[in-house]
Write a protein that binds this DNA or RNA. Sequence first.
DNA 1: GTCAGCGTTGCTCATGGCGCAACGGTAGCC
DNA 2: GGCTACCGTTGCGCCATGAGCAACGCTGAC
Lengths: 256, 256
Amino acid sequence: MSNADGAAGVQSVDRALTILERLARSGEAGVTEIASELGVHKSTAFRLVATLEAHRLVEQTEDRGKYRLGVGLLRLAGATTARLDLVQEARPVCRQLASETGETVNVAVLSESSALYLDQVAGSSALQPHNWVGQHIPLHATSNGKVLLSGLSRQECDAVLSKMSAYTPTTITTKAKLRAELDQVREQGYALAVDELEVGLTAVAAPIRNVHGDVVASMSVSGPTFRIGAERVEEITGKVVEAAEEVSHRLGWGHR
Amino acid sequence: MSNADGAAGVQSVDRALTILERLARSGEAGVTEIASELGVHKSTAFRLVATLEAHRLVEQTEDRGKYRLGVGLLRLAGATTARLDLVQEARPVCRQLASETGETVNVAVLSESSALYLDQVAGSSALQPHNWVGQHIPLHATSNGKVLLSGLSRQECDAVLSKMSAYTPTTITTKAKLRAELDQVREQGYALAVDELEVGLTAVAAPIRNVHGDVVASMSVSGPTFRIGAERVEEITGKVVEAAEEVSHRLGWGHR
DNA sequence: GTCAGCGTTGCTCATGGCGCAACGGTAGCC
DNA sequence: GGCTACCGTTGCGCCATGAGCAACGCTGAC
């Protein structure tokens, strides 16, 4: 058992799952390509892929074609979020918010020192934005991240923050500035991020609280900066705060 | 090689994936429980689960606790939806439907208070209809529009509906009548429009759903009213519903 | 205290998975 | 057109590897 790096256990299962991750990264790949990356014979890779295919976790683009991720994953992921009542309660509210604003709505939680995006409802705009679901995004560069941080104590916050990389010229990179920002977030009840993760991307987020009042998640509306100008920010802010409060209520916070 | 049902290939991978499906169905389970269902020793089940855990596809509720699906699945599913393009997935199904019925097939989505037509496949008839792709069409006067509206809540529906102009004598122009119509659409799973947008134009539409079951688009068959009489409506309805369900499946919805 | 059941872990053996080589098909290139 | 090169796919035989066994630490019920 030459268990060098972290993932191990059952070799063939490990390899199969590595294939899934590989396909998630690059879109699609052929058997030979996969085999050489895994360092196994292509017949081995083929059998692994065939087993994944039998469970609809991958599918081939055409007969004798390349392979890509399959719809079976959607079902599994659906079951994953279905057990989180947060997502269940938030979804109708998200849809309503997305339809009112026409922009993309996301729900994120704190996970391992970053923001984990749990759900996304696309806005009505024809061009689809990038899908964030399942991704871990840095806390200091997003509106959701700021909201999630604003629910932590100073010590917890320090523990969670590692290095704060600059993604754009306006990314907050010092703890002092971030603390001031978080104070503001706590005071006004929402967070704003303009061009901080990506130039041209604006987002507004508000906290979702559980029955005890703890910040358990964050809900955001995001879209291109050219479409979300100063005056729309104000309108959207009101709506996202209201929506997040509605979800908080459904989770038992406030009562009335 | 005593595998009864379809899935086979690499045994341990097959078992691991079966565990995922099992967890998707029932929420969470312990090692012993899983082992007995798979018909293997619990140490075997444990190692499979541990490998899945190393890739974050499952997680345990607490130390030495039960197992459930993990967040790694969200990431994989996110990568899947990124490549899922409605038009691309729908196109082969549309072509088949157009060739079976001989009429024109359209795919539309909700956009800015109207139905936006994304794709069209012309029927085999010599008489070609005009091209709807890219056009915004009123929601209350088309079968596609009714289907798209039927997926909205009452508030969302009201927010989206502006004034309901009459295009023909049979156009629905009151909210009460439209609501009754939408209830019927929801119940029967398709929408019909005869001479409502244009005299002499009949269309039948059915909903396309995403993995969550949300109505994300609508697929319609349309043609001259003289060619689509009462008896053909019945035949066409079945086919368009079936086709829309096929596309929904490709987008991850349902699976039996 | 006892017992039963859980998740977890060395150990050992045979079985299931791997590499090999060959096949059929396709695309590109002289 | 024939040739080459490479693709995904498949039977076969050997041995690494994954399965079963049994024991351990732990928790909770009685």
